[in-house]
Amino acid sequence: MDTEMLFKILCGAIAAVMIIYYIRRQKKMLSFFIGAFTGGAALFIVNKYGPLFGTDIPLNLFNILGSLILGAPFVAFIVIMNFL
């Protein structure tokens, strides 16, 4: 199994977990906005300071939407996949 296929499978799994998380929350919209904020902040921090640690995550449409919808776990997953 190549890295791209592993990336797609794990992105789908993370998306399913986050959807279930947001559905089960009592304040769904507040949880979504907090998750979007933390995901965007994490992506910005990794983009700004990542090259110091050897990880270069570009700001493209896929990364921005993924971090805003899925939150900080998506950004952590991208960083992990960058080292593989």
Rank of each mutant, 00 (worst) to 15 (best):
P73F: 10
L65A: 14
A16K: 00
M1Y: 07
N60E: 08
K27N: 15
N60L: 09
Y49D: 05
G39L: 07
L84P: 02
A42P: 04
G12Q: 01
I34E: 11
N47F: 07
I14K: 11
P73V: 14
F74E: 04
P51D: 06
A13C: 15
L59M: 11
M5L: 13
V79C: 10
I57W: 04
P51R: 02
M81N: 08
M5W: 05
N60K: 10
F83H: 13
D56L: 05
V17C: 12
I19E: 01
I57G: 05
L59N: 04
C11F: 14
N47R: 05
A72D: 03
F7G: 04
G50P: 04
A36Y: 09
A76K: 00
F32Q: 08
F53P: 04
F74I: 13
I19Q: 02
I23Q: 05
L61P: 00
L10Y: 04
I19V: 15
F7H: 12
A76Q: 02
Q26P: 04
A42T: 01
K27C: 02
T38D: 00
F62T: 14
A36V: 12
I19W: 08
C11D: 08
R24I: 09
Y22A: 02
G40W: 13
K48E: 11
G40Q: 09
K48D: 05
G66D: 07
M18N: 06
G50M: 01
Y22N: 01
A15R: 00
I64M: 11
L84V: 15
F32N: 07
G50V: 05
Q26T: 15
G54I: 09
F83A: 13
F37E: 11
L52C: 01
L43F: 12
N82V: 00
A76Y: 06
L61A: 15
M81Y: 07
V46H: 00
A13R: 12
L61K: 13
L70Y: 03
I64E: 06
A13W: 11
I45L: 15
G71P: 06
I23A: 07
L52A: 08
I9H: 06
L59H: 06
M81I: 04
I57Y: 03
I57Q: 07
G39Y: 12
C11Y: 10
I78Y: 02
V79K: 14
I14W: 01
E4I: 14
F7S: 14
A41R: 01
S31R: 05
K27G: 03
P58N: 07
R24T: 14
N82A: 12
A41C: 11
F37Q: 09
I45K: 03
T38H: 06
M18W: 08
V79N: 08
A13F: 14
A16N: 02
M1G: 14
T38K: 08
F77E: 12
D2R: 06
R25S: 14
N47K: 07
F62L: 15
I45F: 15
C11P: 00
V46N: 00
G12C: 05
A76E: 01
T55I: 11
